[in-house]
């Protein structure tokens, strides 16, 4: 564990707490892409299949349980209590391409052809693009609530900081894995426009609006 990974994990934790707070406070899931939330649920379930077979630490297990449980809770609540508060007509990104693309990528690029390893790799590739339905929806509406922008910033910073963690681990431990590195880079590039608007507008107290 190093400071980049710890802060990254805490940013990830914070992002989910901010999202739960947004939904509770505004009593609405408006502006949140259900499809992105569904993809994150698939990402965490497929990545943490080793939950019961591979013990790392209490920290590791607690975080895994939290990420699976919270993403499941959000997907469930968006379909139940908050079903009427968000508009599926705005959430039109075709996630079949992302699900299929990640499957093809993990079948071609993986380190071991085993059940757990393939699902882990699938989750890595899928996470890289899971934000696309959310970004697509925001590009259609052209704006986002400030709390939603904070949520997305924390979520994007999490994987961005993991990229820094991988560079640091390579320098200090000689540890290197190019699949998560490349996927993390892809995700960070996809976030570039969002980060630009976040830093230039939201952090200066203005509303998140696309030019």
């Amino acid at each position: 564990m190093n400071v980049f990974r710890l802060v990254a994990d805490l940013m990830h934790l914070a992002s989910i707490l901010i999202l739960l707070l947004k939904i509770r406070k505004t009593r609405s899931a408006a502006g949140i892409s259900f499809k992105s939330q569904l993809l994150y649920l698939i990402v965490f379930v497929t990545r943490y299949l080793d939950l019961f077979t591979h013990w790392v630490s209490l920290y590791n297990t607690a975080m895994k349980v939290f990420f699976i449980a919270s993403s499941g809770y959000i997907v469930y609540q968006m379909q139940r209590r908050y079903r009427a508060t968000w508009d599926p007509a705005l959430d039109t990104f075709r996630i079949e391409f992302l699900l299929g693309g990640a499957a093809v990528m993990s079948l071609i690029f993986h380190t071991k052809f085993t059940f757990l390893e393939l699902f882990w790799t699938y989750s890595i590739w899928l996470e890289a693009v899971a934000i696309l339905p959310q970004l697509f929806q925001m590009s259609r509406t052209g704006e986002a609530e400030t709390i939603t922008a904070h949520y997305l910033f924390a979520l994007g910073a999490y994987r961005g900081l993991y990229v820094v963690n991988w560079i640091y681990r390579y320098a200090t431990e000689g540890y290197w894995e190019w699949i998560p590195f490349l996927a993390g880079m892809v995700q960070t590039v996809l976030y570039a426009d969002f980060f630009y608007v976040y830093f230039s507008r939201v952090m200066r107290g203005k509303k998140f609006e696309l030019p």
């Binding site: 990974r5 994990d9 990830h12 790392v56 895994k64 681990r169 540890y175």
Partner: peptide, 10 residues
């Protein structure tokens, strides 16, 4: 201790 294959990460 680090685990091979990055499985100590989240």
């Amino acid at each position: 201790a680090s685990v091979a294959g990055g499985k100590d990460e989240l």
